[in-house]
């Protein structure tokens, strides 16, 4: 596999590719020659190779064979009924709030007035994300097959008309949602999942604030979040992804609130 093709000089990337066996034979011998000329680099590269060898030894191939030989691959997991139902309701969902947009002014120009409110909301959203996206048996209280009920229920508890955003254009579909506490107030969590099983939380809670806030991006411990606030609610979107992707999704959600 010729992963790193050597054109002129040998770079750090070539040395890594050499250790990982990702160079063509011709390039590998160029690196070998280079290492003979550069003993200090050769020491380093030898250490890397020793690390690789150790890692390989640490996780036994034989044991892996043994432990996976009984896994049943004829698992039947087709759920046409649920899926069809989901398609029917997909059209009527789209979280979040009607009447939001009117209060929204030129995002990007509004300073955040209450940082602690933002911090608390993002923390709550992140905690909910961490706790429930990992849940295998009951990731949500109400599943996407009852999306209409879910949206009605959460709307009445938050005393605001919510809709569940349709994130299919971003590759995510609704898993479901739940009611959460946010201080003395109720909050809503909607969980989404993409084809690779990556999950995303859309969180909404009452704002108690006149001030609006534009998109605030934050990354902490691998989790990215985007926060904003409109007249009725505060929103936080949390996922384990890069800034650009999450902002694109947040923009998608925001547009559906208008």
């Amino acid at each position: 596999m010729s992963e790193e093709h050597i054109k002129n000089e040998i770079t750090e990337a070539h040395l890594h590719a050499y250790v990982d066996g990702l160079l063509s034979q011709a390039d590998a011998s160029k690196v070998s020659d280079y290492l003979i000329q550069n003993p200090e680099k050769a020491d380093e590269v030898a250490d890397w190779a020793a690390q690789n060898k150790m890692l390989d030894n640490l996780f036994s191939h034989e044991e892996a064979e043994l432990r996976t030989q009984d896994i049943d691959l004829s698992i039947s997991v087709d759920r046409p009924a649920v899926f069809a139902k989901f398609l029917r309701v997909a059209a009527m969902i789209a979280i979040v709030v009607a009447g939001v947009a009117s209060g929204w002014v030129a995002r990007g120009t509004m300073p955040v007035q209450n940082v602690s409110l933002q911090v608390a909301t993002v923390q709550n959203a992140r905690a909910a994300h961490v706790l429930y996206t990992s849940e295998v048996l009951h990731p949500v209280d109400v599943g996407a097959d009852q999306a209409a009920h879910l949206v009605d229920w959460l709307s009445s508890r938050l005393d605001t008309k919510l809709i569940a955003p349709d994130l299919s254009s971003s590759g995510f579909s609704l898993v479901g949602g739940r009611l959460l506490p946010s201080g003395d107030n109720p909050a809503a969590q909607f969980m989404y999942e993409n084809g690779a099983g990556q999950r995303l939380t859309v969180y909404a809670s009452p704002g108690n604030e006149e001030k609006l806030a534009s998109f605030q991006f934050e990354k902490w411990d691998g989790f990215s979040s985007v926060y904003w606030r409109d007249q009725n609610l505060q929103y936080a979107i949390v996922g384990e992804m890069e800034r650009e992707q999450l902002i694109a999704i947040a923009t998608n959600v925001y547009r559906q609130l208008i």
Partner: peptide
């Protein structure tokens, strides 16, 4: 690579839960 993407997401969810709780 496709399978590993799925696996990594499962692991991350699981792992984060464990460290969180």
């Amino acid at each position: 690579p496709w399978l590993m993407t799925i696996l990594l997401n499962i692991y991350r969810n699981q792992y984060r839960r464990d460290t969180y709780l």
